[in-house]
Write a protein that binds this DNA or RNA. Sequence first.
DNA 1: AGCTATTTCTACGCTCTGTAGAACTCGTTC
DNA 2: GAACGAGTTCTACAGAGCGTAGAAATAGCT
Lengths: 118, 118
Amino acid sequence: MPGLGDLERSVMDVLWDSHEARSAYDVQNALAADSERPLAATTVLTVLSRLEKKGFVRRERVERPHRYSAVASREDHMAELMHEVLGGADDRQAVLARFVGQVSPAEAEALRKLLSAN
Amino acid sequence: MPGLGDLERSVMDVLWDSHEARSAYDVQNALAADSERPLAATTVLTVLSRLEKKGFVRRERVERPHRYSAVASREDHMAELMHEVLGGADDRQAVLARFVGQVSPAEAEALRKLLSAN
DNA sequence: AGCTATTTCTACGCTCTGTAGAACTCGTTC
DNA sequence: GAACGAGTTCTACAGAGCGTAGAAATAGCT
């Protein structure tokens, strides 16, 4: 249930950026584009397996190159993380107060709209 | 820059719950109250030192039993964590939309008030 | 049945965290 | 001022998580 490591997060980013299911090779190539040294195929597979075990990634074993996809969208994931933080608070309202106190005016306005849209 | 471990969080909780600066012994006793097995004094000191290095705790070395206190309030800390999560998003508004979409009606109302209070 | 692409198993080094003994320091006592 | 004791710093180690990948197993194709 812990968070994500650096490489794990990079892999999630790849899956999030291409909204379809991807093979391990796709992920490997996408990662290679960003960094000099390419990762071994097994490394990518290991990370994907760990992400699956953690519940962040879904794997389709139908075709031979298995396809992987993110369980939740990046936005849902992040919103969930924020709720997790908030969940550990005894005084949620106080935390929310501090939180909205630090958002930019533009974002405050956006929040107002979101909340009134109801 | 990583997060907090279980014991580290417990120590922070002690400091947060008593809003004044506390000695390591105070922390040790508070922790002993919650769990069966008491921790060694050095363990508490080590954790407090690590928390200081991480910037979560401030230490006053004036008196002989040093006094420790939380740098930020629990609420500020949590709001900060939420902003950290949000900071990693490319589309912040989308994350905020998901986030407010999952708050309870009561909290949504509270948020409305907080935002209109400008 | 054998070759090749892919996946699973196993493993190792590094960092972080919980845990604490050993060693050191500083104010107080004889 | 030498010894003592409370408190602090140093050093250490084990376990978990993660990056990393070779070795071994598997599965489809020829």
